[in-house]
């Protein structure tokens, strides 16, 4: 690594400095666009007591579900966690804590975290359990609650293509939480399917500028499909 070159060559190096009890912000929606190899590296490292903000918690044996096997996660900040039996067991037994956060609020908390905005007002969750204990303000006759930004010691994300400076392009709905999540970590680690030389990407086509990315690694991906639905010709 030199200058703006963000490329690292091993997953070990990609997550160097990740320690017990840290907070990680992760991209992905279901198993789509998840940083699957970075998650596997966290499993291999055996880092424990983690707080992870991610829309979902993976499934049994896939994605963040892998980190539940060795009880590496202390707390999840998610909008929907209903696809994982191990998660349910650990939640019921009190080994795992979950902070359910509306999906749009979660995305905005990450975006705000990366954009230097400490908190924002939203109507989402007013008058519901999500709004309990939060500051309420009225604007133009409507009630809004104050939601605080999220930031992490690390953020982990998955993009489709990058140049060596970490300028990123995502592919289809694998973009999802990734651009916001990546910006919200002190150390942002991104894995991609392809790394090209600087100058090969059209600056107009870049979805997330490399300024937000600290470490970049090329991986190979399983891309597990949760619900394979097809129509007949």
């Amino acid at each position: 690594m030199s200058g703006f070159d963000k490329v690292v060559t091993s997953y070990e190096e990609a997550l160097e400095g990740l320690e017990d009890n840290m907070t990680i912000i992760s991209g992905g929606f279901g198993l789509c666009g998840i940083p699957e190899n970075l998650i596997k590296e966290i499993k291999r490292k055996g880092t424990k007591g983690l707080t992870i903000a991610s829309n979902n918690a993976g499934t049994d044996g896939h994605g963040l579900g892998l980190l539940l096997e060795d009880k590496q996660i202390k707390k999840m900040i998610s909008s929907y966690v209903g696809e994982n039996a191990l998660f349910e067991n650990q939640l019921m037994s009190g080994e795992l804590e979950v902070e359910l956060t509306p999906q749009g609020t979660l995305a905005e908390k990450m975006r705000a975290g990366g954009a230097g905005i400490p908190a924002f007002y939203t109507a989402t969750g007013y008058g519901t359990p999500v709004g309990e204990g939060k500051e309420v303000r009225e604007f133009n006759g409507r009630h809004y609650i104050l939601e605080e930004a999220l930031s992490g010691d690390f953020s982990i994300g998955k993009a489709w293509k990058a140049d060596r400076h970490g300028n990123l392009m995502f592919r289809k709905t694998a973009r999802n939480f990734n651009p916001s999540a990546i910006t919200a970590g002190k150390i942002a680690v991104v894995e991609v399917e392809e790394i090209v030389e600087v100058g090969e990407l059209d600056p107009d086509e870049i979805h997330l500028p490399g300024i937000y990315v600290n470490r970049l690694i090329k991986g190979t991906f399983e891309k597990t499909i949760e619900q394979r639905t097809v129509r007949s010709a």
């Binding site: 929606f29 279901g30 198993l31 789509c32 666009g33 829309n55 696809e83 999906q103 749009g104 979660l106 995305a107 905005e108 990450m110 975006r111 489709w160 995502f170 592919r171 289809k172 709905t173 694998a174 973009r175 999802n176 939480f177 990734n178 651009p179 916001s180 979805h207 891309k223 597990t224 499909i225 949760e226 619900q227 394979r228 639905t229 097809v230 129509r231 007949s232 010709a233």
Partner: peptide, 30 residues
């Protein structure tokens, strides 16, 4: 999608594989 069109990077909110119509656009969760 048709069987041969299935793309792991293209799903709906129910995590089902889907397709895009002409004029579709893609963006982040935020």
């Amino acid at each position: 999608p048709l069987d041969e069109e299935v793309d792991a990077d293209l799903i709906n909110a129910g995590k089902q594989t889907v397709t895009m119509v002409k004029g579709a656009s893609l963006f982040s969760s935020a």
